[in-house]
Amino acid sequence: MHEVSLGQTIRDYLTGTDIENTTYEDLRQALAQLMVEELGYPAALLEPRISVRFPVDGKQYCRTVDLAVQDGDGRPFLYILFVPGQVNTFTRESLAAARLGKHGPVPLVAVTDTRDALLLETAGGTTLRDGMRALPPRSRALELARQHPAAPLTPERTLREQRILYTYSEFMKTCCDESVCML
């Protein structure tokens, strides 16, 4: 099933603004609520709908990350991507998005369908935790990020990650006939 508009709006849990309601938006809202109310993240440190933009062959592409968790200095250290399917089939795309973060590679990336989740360290792609307890509580998240730093990419590695994310983006765009960037 592809994400489609339901022709109405929904109140965003984090920002309080009205946003387009889609077939998956209620799940994204529940994920944000889980992060705040159960895992202890201040809402002010969670940023919804982060745009990862990247060029390929002179054309700009975009992949939206559902939530970015920031440290106290405003730098993201964890990206969370909601995926509509088996989470392990989205790990490579999610790693590429985390490696191409606006401020450089983000140390951790989580992939979830809200029933299952994987927490990966971005540098090597190793799974740190799996299952719905994979999303770390705030008390543990920054320590995990410090234990798994993500160094800046070389120009060659950046091009490879852009190509990988491009491949996923174009597949979704062609399949769904929509922009992958839902901003």
Rank of each mutant, 00 (worst) to 15 (best):
M1K: 01
H2N: 04
E3G: 12
E3W: 07
V4A: 09
S5D: 13
S5P: 10
L6G: 11
L6D: 06
Q8D: 10
I10M: 13
I10T: 10
I10Q: 13
Y13S: 05
T15R: 15
I19H: 02
E20R: 07
T23D: 15
E25L: 07
E25K: 12
Q29Y: 04
A32P: 13
Q33R: 15
L34V: 00
L34Q: 05
E38W: 03
E38M: 07
L39I: 05
A44I: 03
E47F: 09
P48D: 09
P48T: 03
R49S: 12
V52L: 13
V52Y: 11
D57Q: 15
D57W: 06
G58E: 07
K59Y: 04
T64K: 00
V65T: 13
V65Y: 11
L67S: 00
L67T: 08
V69H: 02
Q70P: 01
G72V: 14
F77C: 04
F77P: 00
Y79S: 08
Y79N: 11
P84T: 03
G85A: 07
V87W: 01
T89E: 13
T91Q: 15
R92L: 14
E93T: 09
L95T: 10
L95C: 12
A97K: 08
A97V: 00
R99I: 00
R99H: 02
G101W: 04
K102Q: 14
P105E: 10
P105M: 12
V106A: 14
P107R: 12
P107K: 11
L108K: 10
A110F: 07
T112D: 01
R115M: 08
R115I: 00
D116W: 14
A117D: 04
G124F: 04
G125N: 05
G125A: 05
T126W: 02
L128R: 03
R129A: 15
D130C: 05
M132I: 02
R133A: 12
R133I: 00
P137F: 10
A141E: 11
L144M: 14
A145H: 09
A145E: 03
A145P: 09
R146K: 12
R146H: 13
Q147A: 15
Q147W: 05
Q147V: 00
H148S: 12
P149K: 09
P149V: 07
P149L: 06
P155R: 07
P155I: 11
E156G: 07
T158H: 01
I164N: 14
I164Y: 11
L165R: 03
L165N: 08
Y166D: 03
T167D: 14
Y168W: 15
S169Y: 02
T174P: 00
T174L: 05
C175K: 13
C175E: 11
C175N: 08
C176G: 05
D177T: 01
S179E: 14
S179K: 03
M182G: 03
L183D: 07
